[in-house]
Every structure is written in C-alpha cells, then in structure tokens.
C-alpha cells in the first residue's frame, strides 16, 4: 500500500527541488561556465597555478588552514577529553561557554580578534604594561590564525566530546591494569578510538578555514587569502571569469573535504566563518 504511494513522495520533495535547481544548481553550472570564458577559455582554470598572485594566495590559504586545523585539533582534544572525563561544579557551564561562539558570524569573530589583539586590544595593553610595547597581531596572518582558531575550536570540541562520550571507560582501565602509563593509554587506546572523529572534525575545520570570508573580510585588508582574492577580483578588478573559476576550485576543495568528514562521522556542523 505504501509502495503505491511512491510518486507522492517525489511530489512532496518537488518544492525543495525546484528551489534547489533554480537557485543553486543552474547558477553554479553557469558559474562554472563563466569561469571558462576568460581570455584562455577552459585553461583559465589553470590561472590558479599560472597567475603568481592567485597561486600565492592559494598556497597561503592552504598552509593557514592546515596550521589552524592542527592547532584546533590539539587544543580541542585536550580540552574536550578533559570535559568529558571530569564532572565538577561548573563543568556544564564551561561546555556551554565553549560552544557559544558556534553561532557567531565570521565578521563578529574578526571583531573579537580586533578586541583581543588589535591596536586597542587586550594583548596590546598587557604587552605595553609588561614590555613597554604594544603587540598588535590582529591585522597580520597571526590575526587570521587566531580568528580561524576562534571559530574552529567550538566545532572540534563538540565533535571530540561526542566521540569521547561513546568511549567505554573500561578500555582505559583495561590498558592501565595491563601496566600502561597515562601517556600509553592516550596513544594506544584513546587516540585510536577518537581517530574517525578527529579526521572528520579536522576536515570540517580545514574546509571552513579555506572558505572563511567574514573573518578575513574584517581582518585581512592586506592579506590575500583565497576568499579575499576572489572578492577583490570580482569587485575591484571586475575579473568575473577569474573570480568564477577560483570560486569553483575553492568550492570543489571544501566540498571534497566535507565529503570526507561526512563519510567518516555521518554529520557536519555549519561551515561558516
């Protein structure tokens, strides 16, 4: 009886499908086509390698994203494991505080970094007091690094906590009873068990960092990361074909990274920044 109603389900999904096709599928296809209308046609997709400015921006973005991912994983693993394995007064509040920034848009995160490490920022004031010199990190690659860490840490902590909660505490106890030191327990038992979660959240973190526009927009007036390069090509240089081809390449990179994440963990958290 239910089987006979199959066409009905396709009918119900139709509104979503129409919107998706009209406003996503068709425009993205058009974008890919426009990307190939540059001076060199399809070869303009190679501009990411051939144009030094594009290539440098690409390398810088990838390196930055890898660095952020590595740091975010280490920091979040330590904090996330600690929060899962220890319940104490205020630990729930701590978890809430750590995950609140999830919903901050990239621009706001940029502003947070300005307050932290900008010209009137906290770090500057402290360093001025201590060493008589204002340390201003916000508008350099360091600022971006801090900003990307800011939006990455909550996501990664959530994923790691979810994975760690599923861990059987007896596994650790078994390793200990066999004589393993704390370090050996972490390396031999905990990290292998967290591996899928670590890879998944690492991939999310990488993809989000690659595509982060808001944070870069607030902080990176002088730094070419890929989203900023695309933005400048489009608005200032009116190089629509170039912007389109770079967008498509960026989109493919982030999509593949997230596909990897999903195949490993079955879910992804919002990629905005």
């Amino acid at each position: 009886m239910i089987r006979r109603e199959y066409p009905r389900y396709f009918l119900l999904i139709l509104p979503a499908a129409i919107i998706f096709i009209t406003f996503f599928f068709v425009p993205m296809t058009r974008l890919a086509v426009v990307g190939a209308t540059g001076d060199e046609g399809v070869a303009s997709y190679l501009s990411i390698i051939q144009t030094p400015r594009h290539f440098e921006s690409m390398v810088a973005t990838v390196l930055l994203s890898i660095g952020v991912t590595a740091f975010a994983l280490v920091i979040s693993t330590i904090a996330g494991l600690f929060l899962v394995r220890n319940r104490f007064r205020g630990s729930e509040t701590l978890v809430s505080l750590l995950t609140f920034p999830l919903a901050f848009p990239g621009v706001v995160i940029g502003f947070m970094i300005i307050l932290l490490a900008g010209r009137q920022g906290l770090i500057g004031s402290i360093s001025n007091y201590l060493i008589g010199y204002k340390v201003v990190l916000a508008y350099s690659m360091w600022g971006l690094f801090l900003g990307y860490l800011y939006f990455s840490i909550p996501r990664v902590i959530l994923t790691i906590m979810a994975a760690a909660e599923k861990l059987d505490p007896a596994l650790e106890e078994a390793a200990q009873s066999l004589g393993a030191s704390s370090w050996e327990v972490i390396v031999d038992v905990i990290l292998p068990a967290l591996k899928p979660g670590l890879i998944a959240s690492g991939a999310i973190c990488f993809a989000t960092s690659m595509g982060a526009f808001g944070t870069a927009f607030t902080l990176a007036t002088n730094i070419d990361v890929l989203p900023m390069t695309i933005y400048t090509e489009f608005t200032l240089n009116a190089n629509i074909a170039g912007a389109a081809s770079l967008s498509i390449i960026l989109g493919i990179i982030t999509w593949i990274a997230l596909l990897l994440a999903r195949s490993l963990s079955g879910s992804t958290v919002a990629a905005s920044g």
Partner: peptide
C-alpha cells in the same frame, strides 16, 4: 545534493546567484 550549499563557500554561491 541538498547539503552542497553548506559545503561550498557562501562567496561562491553568492557569485553564482549574481551572475545568473
């Protein structure tokens, strides 16, 4: 497919919408 708009940077999607 429905999840694609989250996987691809907003900048790219916006560009596509503007061009189209």
């Amino acid at each position: 497919m429905i999840v694609l708009p989250v996987a691809i940077p907003g900048l790219a999607i916006a560009l596509a919408l503007i061009i189209m």
